[in-house]
C-alpha cells in the first residue's frame, strides 16, 4: 500500500487493484463506517446574515478611518494647492501697477483715486499703483500727457529723460524719443533733468532736445493745444513735428531732399489730415504727395 493510502482512498485516488486489496483487509469495514458516518456530521449552526450585520456594524465604526479619510485627505491636498495658488495670484496681481496705453491717433482720460486727472495723448503709456496711491502719488510716463493734479502730497511723474514733482497744479509732459518738454499751466512745477532741478512757474515751458535745455514762455490758455485737437510747435525741428504728425494721424511720413532739422513754428490739426498737411507744408514751402497711408514731403523745386 502506498503512503497515506487512507487519504487517497477517501479521495478516490486508489487504483482498482489497490481498492480490492484494501477491501480484503479486516479494518476495511470500520474505515468505511467511519468515512460514511463522518460525512453525516454537522457543525453547529452559523447564521451568516446575523454575523454579516454584526460585521457591518463593526466596520461602520472603522469606516471613516479606512475609506473616507483618504479621499478627504487628497481633497484637502488639492484644496491646499489651489488656495496657495489663488493667494499667490491675488498678491501678485495686487502688486502689479495699473497700466494704461493709447494707440496711434487715440487719446484717453484717466481719473486717479485722488481725483487728479490725466489726459493721455496718442501712442503713450503710463503706469501707477492704484492700491498704494494714497501713500505714494507716483506715475511712470512714456509719451505725452497733461496732468491736473489735485492738491495733496508730492505728485511725481517719472520718465526716462527727467522727473517732475509737484504738489498741486496743471502741467503737460511730453516725453518722446530725444524730445522732452514740460509745460506748466498752473502753480509751480519742479523738473529734474540729468540730476539738475529747475523750478517751472505757470506759463513757462522747458524743452530738452537731446540734452540741450531751453526755456520759453508759452501762451496760457489753460491747457495744452493737443487737448483742443491741435498740435502746436515753436521753433521745433521738423523731425519732432512730423513724428507727432505720424502719431496723431497714424500715417507714415517720408522725406525727400528735405532737412529734418528745419525749425517749425505753427499748429496742425489732429483731426483733419488734409488741413494738417497744408499747415505743415505751406510755411516750410515744401510739397507733399499722399498715397494711401503714406505721405511724401519733397522740395518744391524737385520733380
Amino acid at each position: 500500500m502506498q503512503e497515506n493510502y487512507l487519504a487517497k482512498w477517501l479521495n478516490g485516488e486508489l487504483s482498482e487493484k489497490e481498492v480490492s486489496e484494501f477491501k480484503k483487509s479486516k479494518e476495511y469495514a470500520s474505515y468505511l463506517k467511519i468515512a460514511n458516518a463522518s460525512q453525516d456530521l454537522r457543525a453547529p449552526n452559523f447564521d451568516v446574515n446575523q454575523s454579516w450585520e454584526l460585521l457591518q456594524a463593526q466596520n461602520a465604526q472603522k469606516h471613516p478611518k479606512v475609506i473616507t479619510i483618504s479621499p478627504f485627505k487628497s481633497f484637502l491636498r488639492v484644496a491646499a494647492v489651489i488656495a496657495v495658488l489663488l493667494t499667490g495670484a491675488y498678491f501678485y496681481i495686487n502688486t502689479l501697477d495699473d497700466n494704461i496705453k493709447t494707440q496711434l491717433a487715440e487719446n484717453k482720460e484717466i481719473i486717479l483715486p485722488d481725483n487728479s486727472e490725466i489726459l493721455l495723448n496718442a501712442e503713450s503709456e503710463l503706469s501707477y499703483s492704484e492700491k498704494n496711491w494714497d501713500s505714494k502719488r507716483a506715475i511712470k510716463l512714456e509719451g505725452e500727457a497733461f496732468f491736473k493734479v489735485a492738491k495733496g502730497k508730492k505728485f511725481t511723474v517719472t520718465t526716462d529723460q527727467g522727473t517732475i514733482a509737484v504738489l498741486g497744479t496743471q502741467f503737460n509732459v511730453e516725453n518722446r524719443d530725444g524730445f522732452f518738454e514740460v509745460t506748466c499751466f498752473e502753480g509751480l512745477v519742479s523738473v529734474t533733468i540729468d540730476g539738475e532741478e529747475q523750478k517751472l512757474p505757470a506759463g513757462n515751458s522747458i524743452i530738452s532736445l537731446n540734452g540741450n535745455i531751453t526755456k520759453s514762455q508759452v501762451e496760457i490758455n489753460g491747457q495744452p493745444s493737443w487737448l483742443n485737437q491741435e498740435s502746436s510747435f515753436k521753433s521745433i525741428p521738423l523731425k519732432y513735428v512730423l513724428a507727432e504728425f505720424q502719431r496723431q494721424h497714424n500715417i507714415e511720413v517720408e522725406l525727400k531732399d528735405i532737412d529734418e532739422n528745419l525749425l517749425f513754428t505753427g499748429t496742425f490739426s489732429n483731426i483733419d489730415r488734409d488741413l494738417a498737411l497744408k499747415s505743415i507744408s505751406t510755411p516750410l514751402q515744401i510739397k507733399f504727395k499722399l498715397e494711401g497711408n503714406k505721405v511724401l514731403f519733397y522740395e518744391e523745386s524737385a520733380p
Partner: peptide
Amino acid sequence: IEKRMHLALKTLREKID
C-alpha cells in the same frame, strides 16, 4: 494534508475498534 487525513482516519479506527 494527505498525511493528516491518513493519520486521522487511522487513529479514529484504532480508537473505535
